[in-house]
């Protein structure tokens, strides 16, 4: 089962991210996949906005992971924004220990997360960024974590 949302522009992608924050709960790990330029970081910036992150969110390609404090009514106090594009081996991803860090009232967004999905186990959500012919993007949400989020995801996909 999956949920799809079309985004015509970067503004749309950011709005989709901002509203996606309402789907999240503490402890979630979200893997973002799609080619370079398909909107993963833009989406992450939207999610950060939706979670009440005040500071600027940039691509963590070179730092691998950045932490942002959040202020919201979702019980989420920290956003771990990771990008594993440059990793050489899964050991590096494992050493980030994101799956354990999120247990302290946090969520993790992992760009290129699908290349290391075995590190994260089954209970994740996947957001795939598919480039359309008209240069828009379709965001496709799937994964085991969606099973108990159907209502908020229906709402998210209907926007």
């Amino acid at each position: 089962m999956n949920w799809r949302r079309y985004c015509a522009s970067a503004e749309d992608t950011q709005a989709a991210g901002q509203e996606f924050a309402r789907v999240l709960r503490p402890g979630d790990v979200i893997l973002l996949s799609g080619q370079l330029g398909n909107g993963k970081t833009t989406f992450a910036q939207g999610v950060a906005k939706g979670l009440g992150v005040r500071e600027r969110v940039t691509s963590p390609t070179f730092t691998m992971v950045r932490q942002h404090e959040c202020v919201n009514d979702l019980g989420i106090s920290m956003l771990h924004h990771a990008d594993v594009y440059r990793v050489e081996s899964l050991v590096e991803v494992r050493e980030l220990a994101l799956g354990e860090l999120v247990e302290d009232g946090a969520v993790a967004l992992v760009e290129w997360g699908e290349i290391a999905s075995s590190v994260f186990g089954r209970d994740v959500m996947n957001v795939d960024f598919v480039l359309e012919e008209d240069e828009g993007r379709t965001l496709v949400v799937s994964g085991a974590l969606t099973l108990d989020r159907q209502e908020p995801l229906n709402q998210w996909a209907s926007q």
């Binding site: 081996s89 899964l90 494992r94 699908e114 290349i115 290391a116 999905s117 075995s118 590190v119």
Partner: peptide, 19 residues
Amino acid sequence: LYLREADAVANFTTRQPPS
């Protein structure tokens, strides 16, 4: 003993070089 992906390497097949 991690059990998960002990000696695995990342699945880079879906990753394109920067253009």
